[in-house]
Design a binder for these strands. Structure first.
Lengths: 222, 222
DNA sequence: GTTTTCATGTAACCCGTTACATGATTCA
DNA sequence: TGAATCATGTAACGGGTTACATGAAAAC
């Protein structure tokens, strides 16, 4: 009953720590704001919110009250519910942030942790980054070994898949190296703003295409 | 009862099509041979094998005894139950291979499909590759839009996470472009040889770093 | 002869989704 | 006024893992 999922719970607490929200908006933030974060559905979000409330980590507050006074008096009225972190919730999240276990380097966990690095102390950040890196290096070792063992028996496509997979992992390791270096030499985080990229381009940063041609419906359907 | 998971079932059929095997070895192949394939556990593998047998796609055969030297050639050990594809199973797999639906471009599905491209007709390969690509391009569009909308409100780490995520996707798109081009111009598959990396260790295929004779049991524990 | 690895399974649980049901608000 | 979107929920199922139970062959 109590041991609700690590990652969803963690992300919810983290987002609500920044500011109170209602479920619907929470889900949007979960799915867009946070990196390549997996898309959670209401079917998992609302139950999660409930157990967090039950655990005393959140409180429900009436959202923007029904402007319509007459409607408010009707029975069964459902209003927006804004969730706010309690003191306990804050403390709990703090603990989760500080906790570095081998879970923290796994793919999804790591992404979630990274997304809240802004709230994380530097030494914990370092541990997480380094943990992640060595996790990936282990993985690389295995892939190399496996590749060496089986190279001949594999067709071109399987080989290519494997090669591409390894390259991706190597790429992430390099990324981590940069991040760790940044952490060591104080603030910086990449060549930062980079208004005009005069050079031929290193990392490929997004490229500032036109104005915010927003497409208001840039949302993920349920 | 029948609608067993797409991807595991698919991979099992595909591997068994190449050659009969017992469960234990099957799992190993699943976890190592096939790209960055997710690690399946026995808890899902064996039940899956059972339903495939029940469906008439596989038959169980008594494993080779220790005196059967020929069967022990590769990774050879004695086995208890060897699974072999039936004619129905072959046909079923063929259908799955030919089937191009929007599921086929999703991350895990795609990897599984790609792993068996060796058995796949060229036009299907093209459809899958192009489907995957446009799937990723959609995703990129959304990420860009979301990024444009929220850029100011995000802290450096969130931003960096997002940037890195986008870069990964862009990278895969480029990879797909190359593959599609290869398919168009007949066989080739990559520029192969890979010239020297003049820049300190870029993307080049790493292989061949010292004696990799490490840890012969490159396996994942159950 | 004991430890390791190979080998096969099962039951309980976990984390999440799909599909559904409902109601409120906004806007053309 | 009706459609789209915002907003909240739930029941049923799905696809997988973990932890456990078991045993036989290999390796030391």
């Amino acid at each position: 009953m109590s041991r609700r999922s690590g990652i969803l719970e963690f992300a919810v607490l983290g987002l609500l720590r920044e500011s109170p929200m209602h479920g619907y908006e929470l889900r949007k933030r979960l799915n867009t704001s946070l990196g390549v974060f997996r898309a959670f559905s209401y079917g998992s979000l609302y139950p999660c919110l409930k157990t967090l409330v039950a655990g005393g980590y959140l409180i429900e507050e009436p959202g923007s009250a029904p402007e319509d006074a007459r409607a408010a008096s009707l029975a069964g009225r459902r209003a927006k519910i804004v969730y706010r972190l309690t003191a306990d919730g804050k403390e709990h999240f703090e603990e989760l942030l500080a906790h570095t276990g081998p879970d923290a380097w796994e793919d999804e966990h790591f992404a979630a942790r990274f997304a809240f690095f802004g709230q994380t102390s530097r030494d914990v950040r370092m541990r997480v980054l380094e943990g992640r890196r060595s996790r990936l290096e282990e993985r690389l070792e295995k892939m190399r070994a496996s590749l060496a063992r089986t190279r001949e028996r594999l067709d071109d496509y399987t080989l290519e898949l494997q090669r591409h997979g390894m390259e991706s992992v190597e790429r992430e390791v390099r990324w981590l190296n940069e991040l760790i270096e940044s952490e060591r030499t104080g603030r910086d985080m990449r060549k930062a703003a980079a208004p005009q990229d005069t050079s031929g381009e290193t990392g490929g940063t997004p490229r500032n295409r036109g104005g915010s041609r927003t497409d208001p419906s840039g949302d993920t359907a349920n």
